Amino acid sequence: MLTPVTDPDGAPFWRYAAQGELRVQACADCGEPRFPPRPCCPHCQSFDSEWLRTSGQGRVWSWVVPHPPLLPDYAEQSPYNVVVVELAEHPRIRLVGNVVAEPGAPLGSLSPDRIRIGARVRFVYDERSGLPQWVLERP
Rank of each mutant, 00 (worst) to 15 (best):
S55L: 03
G31Q: 08
A26E: 08
P39I: 01
S78H: 07
Q25I: 09
H43I: 10
S49Y: 09
Q45M: 13
H67L: 13
P69H: 09
G58A: 10
Q77T: 09
V24A: 02
P42V: 06
L22V: 05
S62G: 09
W51C: 01
H43G: 06
P79Y: 00
D29I: 02
A28D: 10
Q25L: 08
A26G: 09
Q25R: 04
G58V: 10
F35W: 15
R59F: 11
H67W: 11
W61Y: 12
C27Y: 00
G31C: 07
S55V: 01
S46L: 00
F35Y: 14
A75F: 02
P66K: 11
P42C: 04
Y80M: 03
S78T: 11
P33I: 04
R53V: 09
C30F: 08
C30E: 03
C27E: 03
G58Q: 09
G56D: 09
R38M: 12
R59C: 11
Y74W: 15
L52N: 04
R59H: 13
R23S: 04
G31W: 00
R23D: 02
D29A: 11
R53P: 10
V60L: 11
Q77V: 07
S46D: 02
H67M: 12
P69C: 05
V65K: 04
H67R: 15
V24E: 00
Q45G: 00
C27Q: 04
G31D: 09
P36V: 08
A26P: 05
L52W: 10
G31L: 05
Q45W: 13
D48W: 08
A28G: 12
S49P: 00
R53H: 06
C40I: 13
V64E: 11
V64L: 14
W51V: 01
W63N: 02
E32W: 11
R38L: 10
Q25Y: 03
C27F: 01
F35M: 05
D29S: 10
P72R: 11
P69E: 03
C27H: 02
T54N: 06
Y80N: 05
A28S: 12
Y74A: 13
L22M: 10
P39Y: 06
R23V: 02
W61T: 05
G58Y: 05
C40H: 11
Q45I: 07
C30S: 07
C30K: 01
D29W: 00
R38W: 03
R59N: 12
R23K: 10
P39V: 02
P39A: 15
Q77E: 14
C30D: 12
A75G: 03
L22I: 07
G31T: 08
Y80R: 05
C27A: 09
G56K: 05
T54A: 07
P66G: 09
Y80T: 01
D48I: 00
W51L: 01
C40P: 00
C41Q: 06
P66A: 08
H67D: 14
P37A: 15
Q57C: 14
F47Y: 12
D73F: 12
L71E: 14
W63Q: 03
Y74R: 14
S46P: 02
D48L: 11
R38Y: 06
C41P: 04
L70K: 12
P79E: 01
P36I: 07
P37V: 03
V65I: 08
R53A: 15
